[in-house]
Amino acid sequence: MKHEHRSPITPDFETWPVKHTPTDVVVENGALSITWSDGQTSLYHPFLLAENDPAPETLHPMSREATLTPLDLPEDLQVANAAIAPNGAIEVHWSPARSNSVFHPGWLRGIAWFGDQPAQSTAVLWAGVEQPEPPTFDGPIALEDPQTFLKWLVALRDYGVARLESLPNQDGLLMQIVERVGPIRESNFGRMYTLEIKDDPDSNAFTSGALMQHIDMPTRECPHGLQFLFCRGNSTSGGEGIYVDAYRVAEDLRREEPEHFQALCEINWTYNNRSKSSSYNAQGPVIEQDQHGTVTGIRYNTWLRAPLVASLTDQDRAYRSYRAFTARAQASEYQMEFAYRAGDLLTFDNRRALHGRNGYDAKGGTRFIEGIYSDRDDLHSAIRTLERSLAKDTAQ
């Protein structure tokens, strides 16, 4: 048969390499059991298999989204028997009888459950003494070469901060670059903003004063995930950017001051933006974790905290732990400090990399920095789709 060795499609557009091949398949209480070439065994519920069947009557062949509901499957659905096809795919026969299903082995292995395990983090934790500059890439080359653009995105994901340099002073360029990553997320500062000195500032950022390390938008239910700062010109003195890996701070606290780490995970602070024209207000702990205890986000901004309404005991724990976090965020060994140069695009994970600056002298010089927000989801999506595209180009 023509195409008989072609692997079946998967219920998504991701690349699922076959790193381990199935060596045996059996049915266990109506579920599918697969033994793999590395000796591991995985079980698959019949409902999971049936609703992810890539057949056109189950998933739309173009969108690859489901075209049935869970109630469209019989309640007593079971795998009747299964076999390994010559091309390594898994063929499943059903009871009650319905059309046979064929599954891609790479996809089956990729979604297999082998016991509760924390997701493998790609985060590279750093302190300024170890990482004095952000990972940096040639801007014009990155905009032309997808491989370099991908390396920049991966560095941003892994380090929480990355830089493109030598970009041209061009109107609209920042927006073009951000939209290659994903949609722009607006804020109360607009779709795009300029870090300039305002006569009536609605944020400390719009002054020439020093800024302590912080995240932006702790006042939002979900703070903005990414921030892009494009320096189109800078002839002022001072104003160096100061960045801190808050994940590193959190892990050092977990190890060296566990009582403060625990308080920072447990006690919610309220943040409000104290603006004359808007009133955002949100709560959350300084350190967010997932179910495995992995740090997943930071909500830290010293000057946007509202008064803590809590018992005196909790207030004492909260303030002492906040001071412990601040002591590290302000310590020089944690800080990455560098000047904003014309042509630099500095991008960072706003819920991981604390950012601040030294004060600067606005007299006798100009400072032109544009800013845009986006979200982490857009970064992760851009990485996956670009990796998928480059993998297909390599395979052709």
Rank of each mutant, 00 (worst) to 15 (best):
Pro168Trp: 08
Asn52Cys: 08
Glu165Cys: 13
Pro218Phe: 06
His104Thr: 06
Pro22Lys: 09
Asp145Pro: 00
Thr313Gly: 07
Gly88Arg: 08
Glu130Asn: 13
His93Lys: 13
Tyr322Val: 10
Gln396Thr: 13
Arg384Glu: 14
Asp290Arg: 10
Val18Tyr: 00
Asn234Gly: 08
Phe103Cys: 04
Met175Pro: 00
Leu312Lys: 07
Ser203Cys: 01
Val26Phe: 07
Ile90Trp: 01
Val244Gly: 01
Leu71Gln: 11
Ala327Tyr: 02
Arg352Phe: 03
Val154Arg: 09
Asn268Gly: 03
Pro8His: 07
Leu390Cys: 07
Trp107Ser: 08
Asp344Ser: 00
Thr270His: 03
Tyr340Met: 11
Gly365Ser: 06
Val309Asp: 13
Val295Ala: 10
Ala250Phe: 10
Arg305Cys: 12
Ala31Ser: 14
Asp199Pro: 00
Arg248Ala: 14
Tyr334Ile: 02
Glu186Phe: 00
Ile141Asp: 15
Ala162Thr: 05
Asn281Ala: 01
Glu75Val: 15
Gly241Val: 08
Ala97Thr: 15
Cys222Ile: 12
Glu144Arg: 15
Arg157His: 14
Arg255Val: 05
Pro134Trp: 01
Lys2Arg: 12
Thr296Lys: 07
Lys363Pro: 00
Ala250Met: 10
Arg367His: 05
Val92Ile: 13
Gly356Ile: 02
Glu266Tyr: 01
Tyr334Cys: 03
Glu266Gly: 01
Ala362Leu: 06
Val286Ile: 15
Gln315Cys: 12
Glu144Val: 09
Val154Met: 10
Phe206Lys: 06
Asp200Val: 14
His224Ala: 15
Phe368Arg: 11
Ser389Trp: 04
Gly239Ile: 09
Phe348Ile: 02
Ala246Leu: 09
Ala310Trp: 09
Gln289Pro: 06
